[in-house]
Amino acid sequence: MHPSNQALVVAHFHQDGQLRSDTLNFLEACQGSFKRLIFVSTNLSEAQRALIPDFVECHLRENIGYDFFSYRLGVSLLVDTSIGCEGLGETFDRLTLMNTSFVISDAEKFIKNYFFDGLSKLDSDFVGLTLHLSDGTIYPHLQSFLLSFGKRVLNDERFIAWWSGLELLVNKDQIIRNYEIGLSKFIDELGYTKTSIYSPAKSQMILDPMHGNFEEILDKYGVLKIGLFKINPFRLKLDPLILRAQADEKFRLLLVDGMEN
């Protein structure tokens, strides 16, 4: 994997302050792939913090504001160290924000198919792995567990101001409405292009591809949303996951770790 002029901010949360094995494997696999990698956690224990590779910048913050406040801290740290440049786009080709709400079954596959092959093939300002589709009542938006921004957005002062202007919201539905959906609206209003790397092959009843197309996304990108198998809000048949877990002990333990997140 060749070094890349990309920055990555990882927003970490675990109810017991643990670092999941797949998260650690991902961080280790990132060596040499990012110009800067910032890891922001709200509750990581000291013992777990010691496991993080030295090339990763680790920061702890108060457990408020959900992942968007971790993203905001990461963006702020990048801006603070880019003083003197016209914008973040003068320092980085892309900035990616991701959280730990999904398990990574294959770190190398994920890095290659998203960060390198995926992003390099798209000439778009705002990219995510998946786009939450619209039924006429929900604004179509890139899902905030994994978002990437190109040079034009990074050089726009309005983008930086959006992050610094975030207010503390305690309701998760408000976070989704104002910040996850709101960010896509904001980028659209600025006139930038918005694209998802993964697109469903055909129309579907479930508007969230991470649930409706979980098997295809797992196969291609090596990622799986924890909410799918922990909560299963759409009451999907999860037989493919059960069969994988029965045949692959490593995958079964990955699901167990996710359930305990």
Rank of each mutant, 00 (worst) to 15 (best):
P3N: 11
S4A: 13
N5Q: 08
Q6K: 00
Q6D: 03
A7F: 08
A7M: 12
A7S: 11
A11Q: 09
D16Q: 10
G17Q: 13
Q18K: 13
T23N: 00
T23Q: 03
F26Q: 09
L27N: 04
S33L: 09
F34H: 02
K35C: 09
I38A: 04
I38H: 05
S41F: 08
L44I: 10
S45L: 15
Q48M: 14
A50Y: 14
L51G: 05
L51K: 09
I52F: 03
I52A: 07
P53G: 13
F55G: 11
F55S: 15
E57T: 04
R61M: 01
R61F: 02
N63Y: 14
I64C: 10
S70C: 05
L78R: 11
L78H: 13
D80L: 13
D80T: 08
C85A: 15
C85D: 13
E86P: 02
E86F: 00
G87I: 02
L88P: 12
L88A: 12
G89K: 06
G89D: 09
E90L: 11
T91P: 10
D93Y: 05
T96Q: 08
F102V: 05
V103W: 01
V103G: 01
I104C: 08
E108V: 05
E108I: 06
F110K: 02
I111V: 07
N113W: 14
F115G: 09
S120E: 15
D125N: 15
L129G: 01
T130R: 02
S134Y: 05
Q143C: 03
S144P: 11
F145A: 03
F145M: 04
L146S: 07
L147T: 03
S148Y: 05
S148T: 08
V153K: 02
D156Q: 05
E157V: 13
I160F: 08
I160G: 07
W163S: 03
W163Y: 03
S164L: 01
G165Q: 06
L168T: 13
L168A: 13
L169W: 02
L169A: 04
V170D: 08
I176S: 02
R177L: 15
R177W: 15
E180C: 03
E180L: 00
I181A: 04
I181G: 05
G182T: 04
F186E: 11
I187G: 09
D188E: 15
Y192I: 12
T193V: 11
S196P: 12
P200W: 12
K202S: 11
S203R: 07
I206A: 10
L207E: 02
P209V: 11
E215D: 15
E216R: 06
I217Q: 07
L218G: 11
Y221M: 02
G222L: 00
L224M: 08
I226Y: 06
G227Q: 12
G227L: 14
P233Q: 10
I242E: 08
E249N: 12
K250G: 14
L253D: 14
L255H: 08
G258K: 00
